[in-house]
C-alpha cells in the first residue's frame, strides 16, 4: 500500500502546485454556462427546464478537458516506465492516479455544481440529488479517464481521439446521472437511476484499472 499513497500524495501535490489544473474546469464551466442564457433567452422557465441536463453535461465536459494529461506527463518524463519497472502493481497505480485526479478535479466540480445550478434556476429540491449523483459519477469520469488517457498518452494531439474513445462509455453514465436530477426536478423518485449509477461505479472500479494497465503495458513496450 505504501507506493499507492506515495504516488497519490505526489500527484495531488503536483496538481495543487499547478493551480491551473484545479480551476481550469471551473472557469470553463462558468464561461459555457454564460452562453446558455445568452443563446436561449434569460427566461427562468426555460432555464429551469434545461438546468439538470446542463449542469451535468458541464460537469462532464469540464472533466473531459482535464483527462488527457492523467498519464501524459508521467509517460513523457519516463516516470511511468519507472512505476512499471519497479514491480509496482499497475492496476493499483492506476487507481491511485484516478483517486488523485478525482481529488483535484472531481471534488471541485462537485462543489461548484450548485453554483451552476443556481445560475440556471435549478429547482431547490433537486440540489441534494445533484450533489449525490455527481459524487457517485465523478469517480467514474476519473476511472474511465485513466483508460482513455492511457490509450492516447503516446499521441501528440490525442484530445479529440480521447473524446471519441470515451464518449460511448460515458453515454450510460450521463443517462443515469442527468436522469436522476431530471426525475427529482420533476418530483419523481430518482432511486433507480442512482442505483444504476452506483452499479456503474462498481463496474468501472473493477474493470477500468485493468484496461488502463493493459494500455500502459502496450504503450511501454
Amino acid at each position: 500500500m505504501m507506493p499507492f499513497w506515495a504516488l497519490f500524495k505526489r500527484d495531488v501535490l503536483v496538481a495543487w502546485r499547478r493551480k491551473a489544473n484545479v480551476y481550469q474546469p471551473l472557469v470553463f464551466q462558468l464561461l459555457i454556462v454564460t452562453m446558455f442564457p445568452l443563446g436561449l433567452g434569460a427566461g427562468a422557465a426555460t432555464l429551469t427546464k434545461i438546468a439538470p441536463a446542463v449542469v451535468w453535461i458541464l460537469a462532464l465536459l469540464s472533466t473531459l478537458i482535464t483527462l488527457e494529461n492523467i498519464f501524459k506527463d508521467d509517460y513523457e518524463d519516463g516516470s511511468l516506465a519507472v512505476y512499471a519497472l519497479s514491480g509496482m502493481n499497475l492496476p493499483l497505480a492506476v487507481i491511485s492516479k484516478a483517486a488523485a485526479h478525482w481529488c483535484t478535479t472531481g471534488i471541485p466540480v462537485i462543489l461548484f455544481a450548485p453554483v451552476i445550478g443556481m445560475l440556471l434556476h435549478l429547482p431547490t429540491h433537486a440540489y441534494a440529488v445533484l450533489l449525490l449523483s455527481l459524487t457517485i459519477a465523478t469517480p467514474i469520469f476519473s476511472l474511465l479517464g485513466t483508460v482513455g488517457s492511457a490509450l492516447i498518452m503516446n499521441i501528440k494531439s490525442g484530445g479529440m481521439l480521447l473524446s471519441v474513445l470515451i464518449m460511448p462509455l460515458l453515454a450510460p453514465v450521463l443517462i443515469f446521472g442527468a436522469g436522476a436530477v431530471l426525475e427529482t426536478a420533476l418530483s419523481n423518485s430518482a432511486s433507480t437511476h442512482l442505483m444504476l449509477l452506483s452499479g456503474s461505479l462498481v463496474l468501472c472500479l473493477t474493470l477500468a484499472p485493468l484496461a488502463a494497465a493493459a494500455a500502459i503495458k502496450i504503450n511501454l513496450e
Partner: peptide
C-alpha cells in the same frame, strides 16, 4: 463490454 450497457441504458 460496453455495448450491452449502452444498449440497455439507451
Amino acid at each position: 463490454v460496453n455495448l450491452p450497457i449502452i444498449r440497455y441504458s439507451v
